[in-house]
Design a protein around this nucleic acid. Sequence first.
DNA 1: TCTGGGGTCCTAGGACCC
DNA 2: TCTGGGGTCCTAGGACCC
Length: 400
Amino acid sequence: MPRRLIAHLDMDAFYASVELLRRPDLRGVPVVVGGRRRVSADADVAEFPRLRDYVGRGVATTASYEARALGVHSAMGLMKAAALAPDAVLLPADFEEYRRQSHNFKAAVGSIAPVIEDRGIDEIYIDLTDVPGAQDTSADDRLAGARALAHRLRAAVFEATGLSCSIGVTPNKLLSKLCSDLEKPGGVTILDEADIPRRIWPLPVGRINGIGPKARERLDGMGIRTIGELAQAEPAWLIARFGQSTGQWMHEAAHGRDDRPIVTERDPKSVSRETTFERDLHARQDRARLGEIFTGLCVKVASDLTRHALVGRTIGIKLRFDDFHTVTRDITLPGYTADAQAIRAAAGQCLKRVPLARRIRLLGVRVGTLLPADAPEALRLAGRQGSDTTTLPLFPDLDN
DNA sequence: TCTGGGGTCCTAGGACCC
DNA sequence: TCTGGGGTCCTAGGACCC
């Protein structure tokens, strides 16, 4: 593999920072983005809902750095966050605006370095290998070139959006992702293989993208807490415990080795909608309400598919019960569809296969095995089923 | 003060076919 | 009658990420 120069760019507290751009009067105040209710854009600070007044099942999507200092972090339940930061201002998420700013920062980066892999609304990988000025003959010059380029990117993002970001530049995606987090916010971190023992090995294993709570817990039980400790473990020992694929990958990752390419285009694999109810619903007592919600989810998924000119043939549902146990069911149809009634009928079939003894907390509908609506295969199989769906099945109760 | 919503990828077993 | 593999599709669950 020829030597590459890869950047990872991560926007700093993205949603919260976008909100602060529009509401500079909130600067310095702890701000949490999350929850569902809307607030009028011209409300003044005194009218903003405070976290202490929140009641519901929402989680924090983002916390400003002031809120983080109080212990609030993303994915934390808002009721718990309220206990830590009762005076924090709670803003509902405005995805339209975040998407607009996301497009802005990506366009700014693209004007300098066009080979970009999208990793969601607030982060990207960038291949800097062939960008003029990035590569130089001597090692020292190469790192200096990378640093100058990263600073240019950061300045371009700020120019386009008024927002700050952090950037890591290394020979691969794994290390760049780790590095963009090292000097947040606003940091530029350049790292070479030789720096791995000093800068990467002291970090906890959970900082590796792909090692989550479960793997971290297992490793901890084996006495492995840092990436350096993971690097010291014999590959055979890891493989014996985590399987060939994961064990080998862990070993490579701990040594900072990663040859995954930058992926600039990707076909969508599935489209889904789900909702958590304000209170848990019962299949029998709340049958009518569940039926409405279920149909509404199917209509939304159908319109999402249509908007993106996609059709699919695997229809799935997801239920989460009051004990948080989650089940899925799916069915693959003979033909592709984006039709709400066809999706509703198939999803209804799936629902019949789920025992509904407990109260339900979440309901979701998903369509997978996607194709572009105009693909020959999609057209050939379209309309194979579903002429008899004029009456939608009701939400089934316990007895059937 | 329990735990959102939208995704991807992997595994594993059974059906079915050659 | 009993015995194989290999490959692909379908389904369910789970880990993980943003």
